[in-house]
């Protein structure tokens, strides 16, 4: 137990400060807002992550948001286990046809108002995989998308900025 406490104290707090991005910054980060809805998510944002056909590279960076450097929960952003609890669907991957119905059902199960963020090149525009017998391509080919984040995968910092942008925007 002593070892544990010692480590906690010697490491200290590594969490970094981040601010919501300005409009101008969004573009340089590769974040694009497709549609503005006038709903407020200020203070709390519940996210349901849906892998609709990713290579799992994007998932690694979503996981990183929960590490102590980004510590996403301090902003009121948390990942929830059911779409019924979610404000935002964070969709990764080129939508595989085998996941199409699952994605549609997840979308339907998410209460209004809701935002859909397409994270990564695959989800935003099809990326390396594109449209084929196996893939529907970009998420917007299947459900309405409100925001896209470019990158393969986007870094956790860009992802965090995108989420902060949603929360700030509606103030």
């Amino acid at each position: 137990m002593l070892n544990t406490f010692k480590k906690i104290f010697t490491v200290g707090i590594v969490t970094e400060n981040y601010k919501a991005p300005h409009d101008a910054e969004l573009e340089t980060l590769g974040i694009e807002i497709k549609r503005r809805i006038d709903q407020k998510f200020t203070g709390s944002l519940a996210i349901r992550a849906v892998d609709a056909g990713s290579c799992n590279g994007c998932e690694l960076e979503i996981h990183a948001l929960n590490n102590p450097f980004y510590d996403v929960e301090r902003f009121g952003i948390h990942f929830v286990a059911s779409p019924r609890h979610a404000d935002v669907l964070l969709v990764t991957g080129v939508v595989s046809r085998h996941m199409q119905t699952a994605l549609l059902r997840t979308y339907d199960a998410t209460p209004n108002p809701k935002w859909v963020i397409a994270m990564g090149d695959c989800a935003s525009c099809g990326g390396e995989f594109g449209t084929s017998y196996a893939n529907c391509g970009a998420v917007s080919n299947v459900i309405p998308v409100d925001m896209t984040i470019a990158g393969c995968p986007p870094t956790p910092l860009v992802l965090l900025k995108a989420l902060l942008a949603i929360m700030e925007k509606e103030k």
Binding site: G53, S96, H98, A134
Partner: peptide, 11 residues
């Protein structure tokens, strides 16, 4: 499994 079949071999 098979949900994330992306046709990797074909493409």
């Amino acid at each position: 499994l098979g949900y994330v079949h992306k046709g990797t071999e074909k493409i």
